[in-house]
Write a protein that binds this DNA or RNA. Sequence first.
DNA 1: CGGTATCCGCAACGATACTG
DNA 2: CAGTATCGTTGCGGATACCG
Lengths: 119, 119
Amino acid sequence: MKADINDAMCPSRGVLEHVTSRWGVLVLVALRERSYRFSELRRHIGGVSEKMLAQTLQTLERDGFVHRDAKPVIPPRVDYSLTELGEEAAEQVEALGRWTEKRTQTVLANRDRYDEARS
Amino acid sequence: MKADINDAMCPSRGVLEHVTSRWGVLVLVALRERSYRFSELRRHIGGVSEKMLAQTLQTLERDGFVHRDAKPVIPPRVDYSLTELGEEAAEQVEALGRWTEKRTQTVLANRDRYDEARS
DNA sequence: CGGTATCCGCAACGATACTG
DNA sequence: CAGTATCGTTGCGGATACCG
């Protein structure tokens, strides 16, 4: 649990960091289609550790992007979905994500040219 | 210099990381208004070390977002500006940035309610 | 099933000193 | 002025073990 001076000077940086984090992006995009249970979401995303998924979900819940619905049953069942604010956030990152994917090939080519030029 | 398996599996992740990085965002937004010299940009952004600014600019140049114009004069003078692709990138991150700032107060309030609820 | 707690390595970052 | 080189610290993120 941290809160350094940078967050104090520029709180929006922290918000941006949460929604654009490696797993944050994937969680928001996944939950945009439908709600997911924890393990289900973990399998859907792929390559994410329990720890990081739990941490990401907690952060997003704390910020008010994700709603956590823990049903008191055995075995436990917890459903995650987007809040209205989260829906908005997901739209934004998905827009950026679509642009990024559209331009990725160009960027990759740029990198090759750059590396070529100084080898 | 890194290139792990995640980048191989999802190259667009790397691109997203570069444009949304702490200093990457600020560089793109700053260069959108006009071109800057190195130290000038450093002062304008504030709080960024020489090392990180140089690294950020190199990364963005390699990806083809930033154009580096080094004039062969003494003392050295290097101007940085956006390429067309960089202009596009800057628009995207500025849009996300504007949304983030618009919602930051809401998020901060959400965090307080969340923390309150479990203390 | 859906987490938490703990340990730990390694890359990111900042500060400082130096260079063309 | 515009960087590079080196060093020391920090903290993210994975692995593992355990809990309600």
